[in-house]
Each structure stands twice: as C-alpha cells, then as structure tokens.
Amino acid sequence: MNTDRHAIVRVIGVRKTFTMGKVEVEALKGVDLEIFAGEYISIMGPSGSGKSTLFNMIGGLDKPSDGKVFIDEVDISQLDAYELAWLRNRKIGYIFQTFNLIPVMTALENVTLPMTFAGMNEDEARDKGMELLELVGLAKRHHHKPLELSGGQQQRVAIARSLANDPAIILADEPTGNLDLTTGEEAIELLRSLSQDRGVTIISATHDYKMLNVSDRVVWIRDGMVDRVEKREELDISVGGIGETAGAEA
C-alpha cells in the first residue's frame, strides 16, 4: 500500500472485554489496523470472532477497554458527547444489517433526518434527499414508509441516508446479511460505485464472499485478533475454490 496515503482510521492495540454474568469474555485481544482514505475494506470473520466489536469501535459506537482508535489522527476516546454526535452526523454514515430505518417516517424523511440534524434548511434537504433517492433508484417511492418497501429497497434507502451529509467514511455492518443473492449484489455494486465516484472510505463487516470482489483489502479476524490482511490481487490465490468470480475479476 502506498505509504503516502492518508490513514483515515488507525486502530492501535485495541482490546475489549465484556462481562457476561460473572464470566469475562475478551472479544478483542489487541488489534492493530490502518485504513486509508478512499479504500474499500471488508472485515471478514465468522460470527463471534470480534468482527462486530471492532466495527463498533471504529464507528465510535463503543469504547475500547484498552488501546486507541484514531479517526483522521484524532483519538475518539477524547471526544465529548457533542463532538461524537457531530462525527456520527457528518463524517460517518452507518448502514446496518437490519436496515434500521425509522418506521414512522417516509423514505424521504428518513434520508433527510441527518440533514435536519446538521442544520440544513428544509427545501435544500428535500432536494438533496430526492437526489440521493434518485441515486439509489427509489425516487418514485419517496413517500413510502419502510414497511411498504422490500428488504432490498429498505437497504437502498439506508444507503441513501448514510450519504446524507457527504460522510468521509461509510460503515456497513453486514449490509447484505438480510438480503437475497440478487438484491445483495445490487447493494454491493451500489457501495462500490459510491467508493469509486465519491471517494468515500467504505468499511464493511461481513461474512458474505460476494463482498471480496469489490474490496481493495480484506481483513480477516479470528478469535479477536487480525488473522491476516489481504489485498484484492492476492485474494484468488488464498481463497482458492470459493473465489471463482474473484479470480475472473482479477
């Protein structure tokens, strides 16, 4: 990786311990990771590997028990509530496995909510919201509530929402986990084009092998540690049989 590139996320010696009843579980056992601006990173690993925990740390949703997470060289454990809210609002876009749209709001309202928080006026927010829905191909359904949309459509609304304030980083937690093969591929394709066209850094936690095709690098997590980090070029060799399409792409 080019050393002159800007490291947008730097994870240093992060450990996380959860207390479950009386038992202490170490979810992360000292993780070091650097993610560069504009990269498309997949964090792969079986469930229970600590992948989601690491992911939450990077997103500022959880604090490490030990170690530090820097976003753009700022230690996020040092941020106060306002700064964290600001970071979540303008600089990080979240996409969840279960879509997590607000059920009482229409698709458009869901997309414009972060803009309202950011202080954008209503007309501007509506225009931009429609633009983003157009981008994900749902402009015609802007007045529908989430429950009136299919899973794939809900996830596309969620992708539009994550882009509301032109974030620098998009965190996608199992974005294809609740989608079928085709809609999952559409969502992945959408994310890939966003990372290319808009220069957004995309970090996604997943165990969907379709994600490998589009990732610049894949971080494998096992037992709370980084098992290995692979670039896309190396993938088809190590993944072997699984990566038939990955091989074709490379």
């Binding site: 800007h6 947008i8 601006a37 504009g38 306002y82 600089k91 974030p167 620098a168 808009r198």
Partner: peptide, 14 residues
C-alpha cells in the same frame, strides 16, 4: 479524490 474527517477546518469545526 479523498475525503477527510476533520478536513482543513480541523477539530475546531467540530
């Protein structure tokens, strides 16, 4: 085209 988190306005913009 790279996007930065704290950008040129720095942490003050926060």
């Amino acid at each position: 085209m790279e996007k930065r988190v704290f950008g040129p306005e720095g942490k003050g913009g926060v």
